[in-house]
């Protein structure tokens, strides 16, 4: 790949992530509405919401500091940067050398860290409550995430997302040992729900301050700051869904950067992510939000599943 090609691919991916992420959110909302026998808003509604928010002025709490106003930009930029390290429609991302899957997780963590700070910055008890809850959910998610990544990484012999995706894609639909893969998939799916603040861990549609986690942290934001935070949340969701689909079922992704396979890869990516979004919407409609201290049970299950994935990997592969 030449420099110009690489740059074009990176820019293209950035543009796609920015463009597709509100759609995923809209899709999930639509699915939920339909399952609740409502017509629901247009799938493209999130775009209009963002546009409206960008146009509006912002009310800023006078108790806040520069952390509060800087956080949306930091969050947005770090999430976008993390998205550029993950293969979407092309298995080998030009920037993949700059960071592996652990880096992706860490970049997202920076955003979470600043959001927790911003939640506390206004001095409102709601923000503090959100940050405090985010701290525990996020902490318990991390070990399950790391172990499931390990289990997946073992199959591909790497922690580089591009390498994992590329090697799995080359297998052409034959995963030699389904059990570890399936269990790691289940674990990472639970992790995704927890990380992106979805039911049954958090409810993105809630208007009750006492049950909020993510929404409570961003309660004080308005105008373009809120737009950036929401957009970043959508990108994070898209990023996690992309990781899930491309790590476990990368088929159809472009292995070579030629126009035909890129076009196919793009279509397949949108289809896979949409399918996962449907699933998330379905789960949000089927399950109730768990009490905060029941979330540990769920994340415990995720941890055990990823541990079992690891054990099974060695049971099946460990010996000659």
């Amino acid at each position: 790949m030449t420099m110009i090609q690489s740059a074009a691919l990176v820019l293209g991916q950035a543009f796609l992530i920015l463009a597709v992420s509100p759609f995923v959110v809209g899709l999930i909302r639509k699915v939920k509405a339909r399952l609740q026998c409502r017509r629901g808003a247009n799938v493209l509604q999130p775009y209009s919401d963002l546009a409206k928010l960008f146009k509006k002025g912002a009310v800023i709490s006078s108790t806040t500091s520069w952390i509060f106003t800087a956080t949306p930009y930091i969050l947005f930029a770090f999430t976008l940067a993390a998205s550029l390290l993950v293969p979407t429609f092309l298995s080998r991302v030009p920037l993949s050398f700059a960071g592996d899957v652990i880096t992706v997780v860490s970049l997202l963590t920076v955003g979470t860290f600043f959001l927790m700070l911003a939640g506390m910055d206004a001095g409102s008890p709601f923000g503090g409550m959100g940050s405090s809850r985010e701290a525990i959910v996020f902490s318990l998610t991390e070990p399950a995430m790391m172990l499931s990544i390990f289990a997946v990484g073992l199959t591909a012999g790497s922690t580089n997302v591009s390498t994992i995706v590329h090697n799995t894609a080359l297998l052409q639909g034959i995963v030699t040992d389904p059990p570890p893969h399936l269990m790691a998939l289940a674990a990472l799916f639970i992790v995704t729900l927890a990380e992106t603040g979805r039911v049954p861990v958090d409810n993105p549609a809630t208007h009750l301050e006492l049950t909020m986690i993510h929404e409570a942290m961003v309660l004080e934001y308005s105008g373009r700051y809120l737009a950036l935070v929401e957009w970043a949340a959508a990108m994070k969701l898209l990023l996690m869904l992309t990781l899930l689909s491309n790590i476990f079922a990368p088929w159809g992704i472009a292995i070579q950067p030629d126009p035909a396979s890129l076009a196919i890869g793009l279509g397949v990516w949108v289809a896979k992510v949409s399918a996962l979004a449907l699933l998330v919407g379905l789960i949000e409609s089927m399950f109730a939000k768990l009490r905060l201290f029941r979330v540990t049970d769920l994340l415990g299950v995720a941890f055990i599943l990823s541990l079992l994935a690891l054990v099974f990997f060695y049971i099946l592969r460990g010996r000659p």
């Binding site: 963590t109 996020f138 902490s139 318990l140 991390e142 070990p143 790391m146 172990l147 390990f150």
Partner: peptide
């Protein structure tokens, strides 16, 4: 790898602690 998971938990709790 369980040690690595513990390290991951440690790292996450450290983030929480410094927040």
């Amino acid at each position: 790898p369980i040690g690595a998971a513990m390290l991951a938990l440690t790292g996450a709790l450290a983030v929480a602690c410094f927040a």
